[in-house]
Design a protein around this nucleic acid. Structure first.
Lengths: 334, 334
DNA sequence: CTGAAAGCGCTTACAG
DNA sequence: CTGAAAGCGCTTACAG
């Protein structure tokens, strides 16, 4: 697979490689039309494709960014990637996608590899565990944007949902529909993942605001595989909740499984709202009321912020956290 | 963001950069322990990260492959990417993900960019339209693997589902459950996308095999947004089908929407099987019988094949099409 | 208007 | 056991 190089083109066209390079970089200012067409021809005949690696080495920019997602199997990640890819494609950037699997060791490895590969910047859904590494990158002015999660120890631009508002909107919707005994179930928060923490605190604040009694038995943040058990306990209480807020898609799925097993009806026996507008929300029986994250806008914003930084607009703004408003999608589960 | 280079390390350690390079490439054969530790220290102190771009230029391998999916929003694509990423990660490869959006122009652009970026190989869900380009790559021995779709004009290793078998399995399941008037609905096949074509032909063959009458009104392959209309027509026939095979996830969703709107019951009024084990199959009421593609194995195989080719095991096997068996997942919609 | 030369940060045969 | 030199395929100031 011998590749044709700029030198081959130059020889073929009878000019120097400097001139070919000028041509490729569209500096036609002083170029004779004739030279131009000779080069054009040579490129065509030889099917020349420039070696971007060599170019990158010289110009110190790879036009590539890295995206490290926590888990690529989540629809949320995919939609974000899609949005990022869209804006990058516009601007001639490529993205290298990495899947950290919620694993700090993998995350570290990926960050280092991306750095070594000279990507121009990175968008990370941070595990939050590699603080020293984040700091090191930041202090060397390497462009980074965080997505979905905050790392309180460090002031890096971060895009996330207004999670507290998401919970508040859900609680209000429940109240509007006449429920007062409201619970929340989410996957484990022991890892300090921002969305989970904030969704719980948002729920608590909203309950307080509306003077509803906060029953600690109505609040559960546990591993996915314990949710069934916790739901069982919760709904066997002398006074069980009338409504449950699902903190994310996984929690919602567990709730739906439970409801089915227990042959409960929604919203008759229990009312449900889920954060994350899951793909089956519309199809479900009954259609599920959800709170949708503006994933597309979020991904777009992340890409734009990062590309700005790469362009040197290194505006270390005081306000570095970008919150996006969730949107209530009323269907029939509440 | 001045980066530290190998020369910095060499100076700091008081050796030449050749020696540092030897160290990095783990050629310790003749290296004095003392030299070794001096270099180690220097790397540590300077926080040196080698520039892989420079290395790539020299060794002519980027340890990066490109993956061009047809549409990253499909769960199928995501799962394939995940599987590819898993095997690549093992072997120190990175993947650049591109989203061709079923658009040949975008596909061409991406292929050229990836090539220019010196990726070591590409896995493509081909649109099938850029035949000349595929041929050109193949003739220059550039490693490629096709996924999900065949391009008959060209003999490139291709991974795909045994689509005819998928339809056959579905038809047989319908028959076992006592249905004989069986239809199939899939999204438009005008683009000659392999899975759609083969799923229809598989359906036809199976119907023939079991001596069931083939009613052309029961077979529809149209754009997503016309499916509602076609279903309405189909189910208003004097003798409507008792069972419908959904050719893919999109078709399935349309069928479910229709069923809901028309207040039909599954499987009472109409029995349904979907190809693609959609995420909500289990949750739906009733749980949906589906045919699952072994996405993980398929992605793994694609990656392994490609990496083999990259390694030079350029086995142009006569048999170049790898078919994977689908799996029936019996639930309650049939 | 075009070309020679230096250099980007590595690797690798080869000399000593 | 280690270093000097050439070279990977580009770009870019500068000379002419």
């Amino acid at each position: 697979m011998k590749k044709v190089t700029m030198l081959d083109v130059a020889n073929h066209a009878g000019v120097s490689k400097s001139t070919v390079s000028q041509y490729l970089n569209k500096r036609y200012d002083y170029m004779a039309v004739e030279t131009k067409s000779k080069i054009e021809e040579a490129i065509d005949e030889l099917q020349y494709q420039p070696n971007i690696i060599a170019r990158s080495l010289k110009v110190k920019s790879t036009k590539t960014i890295g995206v490290i997602v926590a888990n690529i199997l989540h629809e949320f990640s995919t939609q974000i990637i899609r949005a990022i890819e869209d804006v990058c494609h516009e601007l001639g950037f490529h993205i290298i996608v990495c899947n950290a699997d919620e694993n700090p060791v993998k995350e570290e490895k990926y960050i280092n590899m991306l750095y070594a590969k000279q990507v121009d910047g990175i968008i990370i859904f941070p595990t939050g565990e590699n603080i020293d590494l984040y700091k090191q990158l930041q202090s060397s002015k390497f462009p980074i944007v965080f997505m979905d999660r905050l790392v309180p120890e460090i002031n890096i631009a971060s895009i996330l949902l207004d999670n507290e508002n998401a919970s508040a909107v859900a609680v209000e919707e429940f109240i509007t529909n006449g429920y007062s005994r409201i619970g929340i179930v989410t996957t484990s928060a022991f890892k300090n993942v921002t969305p989970r923490l904030e969704r719980i605190s948002g729920y608590k604040k909203a309950m307080q605001k509306y003077d509803l009694s906060m029953v600690s038995d109505y609040i559960r943040s546990v591993e996915s595989d314990s949710i069934q058990l916790e739901l069982k306990k919760m709904l066997s209480l002398p006074e069980p909740p009338q409504a449950i807020l699902a903190g994310n898609d996984l929690a919602l799925i567990e709730i739906l499984k439970f409801v089915k097993k227990a042959k409960l009806s929604i919203p008759g026996d229990i009312s449900v709202i889920g954060i994350d507008d899951v793909s089956f929300a519309d199809l479900y029986n009954p259609p599920l009321t959800t709170i949708k994250q503006p994933t597309f806008e979020m991904g777009k914003m992340a890409a734009e912020l990062l590309l700005n930084k790469i362009d040197g607009a290194d505006n270390v703004l005081p306000k570095n956290i970008y919150r996006f408003r969730p949107k209530l999608i009323r269907r029939s589960s509440c």
